[in-house]
Structures are given as structure tokens and as C-alpha cells.
Simulated assay, not measured.
Amino acid sequence: MTFTLKFKDIDEKRDIPKENYTIKDLLNDLELSSQTIVPKQNGDLVIEESEIRDDDEIQLVQIIYGG
């Protein structure tokens, strides 16, 4: 089972490493903070607890802070 990850210059298929693999697990694996990332699953905004399923497209959008 695989999903597509899109983040910055990354656009690749990845294996789903375990059952009940969530957006939060993915962020942890990539060492990214949920406070600076907005996750989208198949085009829809989702929460960290959303489970990644076979053939999903996961897009991670970096939040830019400024002042």
C-alpha cells in the first residue's frame, strides 16, 4: 500500500509503513512540526489524526510567519 507525498520539491510515492498510519506519524517521521504545517489529504484540509490510506495524496503546506 502506498500514498503520494507532496511537500516543497518532494513529489513521490511512499509505502505506508504500518496500519493506522496517520498524518501525525508522517510529520513525526519527517521531523516536521504540526504548528508550521497544514496537511491536505486528497485536496481536503485534515487534522493530524487522519489515517493515510492506499492511493491517498498527502500535500503538506508550509506556513510562513512574518512580521
Rank of each mutant, 00 (worst) to 15 (best):
D15I: 10
S33N: 15
I63C: 14
T36K: 15
S34R: 06
N42D: 12
Q41M: 10
L60I: 12
Y65F: 13
D9P: 00
I23T: 00
I37W: 07
K8Y: 02
L32F: 05
G43C: 08
Y65D: 06
R14N: 08
E19F: 11
E19P: 09
I52K: 01
I10D: 03
I23A: 01
G66V: 07
E48G: 02
G67I: 11
G67P: 03
I58V: 15
L32N: 11
K6T: 12
I64A: 07
R14T: 02
K18C: 05
S50R: 07
L60H: 13
I63Q: 09
N20S: 13
D11K: 08
R14M: 13
G67S: 07
P17T: 10
K18L: 05
K6S: 01
S50W: 00
N28K: 14
D55E: 10
E51F: 13
S33V: 02
K6V: 01
K18S: 12
I64M: 14
I63T: 13
N28G: 02
F7P: 01
T36R: 14
V61E: 09
L26Y: 14
E12L: 13
G67W: 03
M1C: 08
I47M: 04
L27T: 02
K18Y: 05
R53T: 15
D29K: 07
P39Q: 04
L60Y: 14
I52A: 03
D54H: 13
L30K: 10
Q62K: 12
D56R: 04
V46E: 03
Q35M: 15
S33C: 03
G66L: 13
Q35G: 10
Q59P: 01
F7C: 03
D54Y: 01
L32S: 04
S50F: 01
N20Q: 15
F7L: 11
I63W: 02
D55S: 00
D11N: 15
L45N: 14
I10P: 05
D54F: 02
P39K: 08
L5S: 05
D56P: 02
F3M: 13
F7K: 04
I47C: 04
I16N: 06
Q41C: 12
I10G: 00
Q41G: 00
R14Y: 07
D29S: 11
F3N: 09
V46R: 01
V38T: 13
D44Q: 12
K18E: 04
N28V: 06
S33Q: 07
G43E: 10
I52Q: 11
